[in-house]
Design a protein around this nucleic acid. Structure first.
Lengths: 201, 201
DNA sequence: GCCTGACCGTGACAACCGTCATGGGTCAGA
DNA sequence: TCTGACCCATGACGGTTGTCACGGTCAGGC
C-alpha cells in the first residue's frame, strides 16, 4: 500500500485526484492540504511514502515546499505536479529533491505509473520536457534582474520598480536592458513574459 | 441517472473529475473530450443531460463551445468550470446559455450539488463572483481596443500591432490610450493585464 | 598583490510611448 | 436629417524607456 500526501490549492482538483488515486488498489491518499506551508507538518504527522505537490500554491509555493519537505523528511518521495511544463520548474524541482515531475496534461494512467515507479526508487521525468529544459538551459538572469522582471511583470513602471527596490531609475533601466538582451526580447514587458514562461521568475 | 459530458484540455483533470463524479450513484460520465471543437459532435452522439465545460481549451474555447452547444442541443444543461473566476467569464458564460458557473476552488461536494441542481432546472452561480461581476460591469472596451490589447498582452510593440492589424501607429496609440483610460491603468502593459484578469480579452 | 569578472550605480542621448487636438468616414437610431 | 458612437488618420508635445559609455565595489584565481 503506497501512502500518498496530496498538495494542491484547488479543492476540486484535490478532491478529484484523491478519488482517482483511491480507485487504485495499491494507492491510498492519507492527507491532502491546500497550502505549501501545510505540507511539512502534514507529512511529519501522517508519514506518507509519496508526496504529490502542485507548483502553484498560496503561501509557500510548491517548489519551496518540496525543498522543505525533502529536508524534513527525506524518506518521502516527491513528485511535482504542475499545469505549466516550464523548463525552469523542472530544474528547480530536481534541485529541491523531487524525483518525479508530471504535467497535468498527462493521462491518469501515467500519473499512477509515475507514483508506483517513484515509490520503487526510480525517477520519472517527461522526456520531452527534459529536452526542452536542457535547450532553455538554466536561468541566465542575475538576482537583481529577476527582481526587476517580477515587478515589471505586474505592470509596474520603471519608477515604481525603482521605489520598490530602493534603486535609481537608471539602474532599473540597466537591469531591464540586460534582461531584455538575455531573453532576446525587445521590450521589458516581453522580457517579463518570456522569463515567466521559462520558469525563471 | 444524470448523464454528463466532460470537456477539459488537461487529461489528468478530466480523468480525475470523471473518477470523482462516477463515485456518485446518480451521476454518470458518458463522454469526455479535450477540445472545444469536439463538444458539439460528442453531445449530439451521446445526448448528455449536463455538460461540464472548462473555459481554457485549445481550438474553440469553452465559452464559444458552450454557445455552440446551446444552439445545437438546448436540452443539455451547461455548467462552466474554470480556474479563474474572472468577472467577464461569468457574464459571457451566461450569455452563451450556461446555467451554472463553478470555479475550481470549489469543493467536490459543491460541484456535485451544482450538477444536481442544474439538472433539476435551477441556476447555480457563486454569489461572491456574481457580486464581483456586477461591480466590474460589462467590458467597456470597443472591438478595436480589445484587438490592440490582446496584441499588447503578448508583448508586442506599437509598431508590431500596427503592422499586424494594418493600422497606422498613431491609431494604435489612440486605441491603447483609450483602453488605458478605461481600465484605469497607467501603461499599456498594465491595461492588458487588467483587462485579462477581468476576462475582457 | 594583481587581474578578472560579475554586480551595482550614474548620466546622457535617441527612440518610443501616451496624450491631445483635429479631421474625415461609416452606420444605427431618434 | 441630425446626432452620437465608433473607426481611422495626422501631427505635435512631453515624458518614459532602452542603450551606451563610464566608474565603483567586491569575491575568487593566478
Amino acid at each position: 500500500m503506497i501512502r500518498i500526501l496530496l498538495a494542491d490549492d484547488q479543492a476540486l482538483v484535490r478532491g478529484a485526484l484523491a478519488a482517482l488515486l483511491d480507485l487504485e488498489p495499491d494507492l491510498e491518499v492519507v492527507a491532502s492540504v491546500a497550502t505549501g506551508d501545510a505540507v511539512v507538518p502534514a507529512a511529519l504527522s501522517v508519514r506518507p511514502d509519496v508526496a504529490l505537490i502542485d507548483v502553484q500554491m498560496p503561501g509557500l509555493d510548491g517548489l519551496a515546499a518540496a525543498a522543505a519537505l525533502h529536508r524534513a523528511r527525506p524518506e518521502t518521495r516527491i513528485v511535482i505536479l504542475t499545469t505549466f511544463g516550464r523548463p525552469g520548474y523542472l530544474a528547480r524541482a530536481m534541485a529541491a529533491g523531487a524525483v518525479g515531475f508530471v504535467v497535468k496534461d498527462a493521462t491518469p494512467e501515467y500519473l499512477i505509473d509515475a507514483i508506483q515507479r517513484v515509490h520503487s526508487g526510480l525517477r520519472v521525468v517527461d522526456p520531452g520536457l527534459a529536452a526542452e529544459s536542457l535547450a532553455a538551459g538554466a536561468s541566465p538572469l542575475t538576482a537583481r534582474e529577476r527582481d526587476v522582471l517580477v515587478a515589471a511583470a505586474q505592470g509596474a513602471t520603471v519608477r515604481d520598480i525603482a521605489r520598490g527596490l530602493h534603486l535609481s531609475e537608471g539602474t532599473v533601466r540597466n537591469h531591464l536592458s540586460a534582461a531584455i538582451g538575455k531573453t532576446g526580447a525587445r521590450t521589458s514587458a516581453e522580457a517579463a513574459r518570456l522569463a515567466e514562461t521559462n520558469g525563471w521568475l
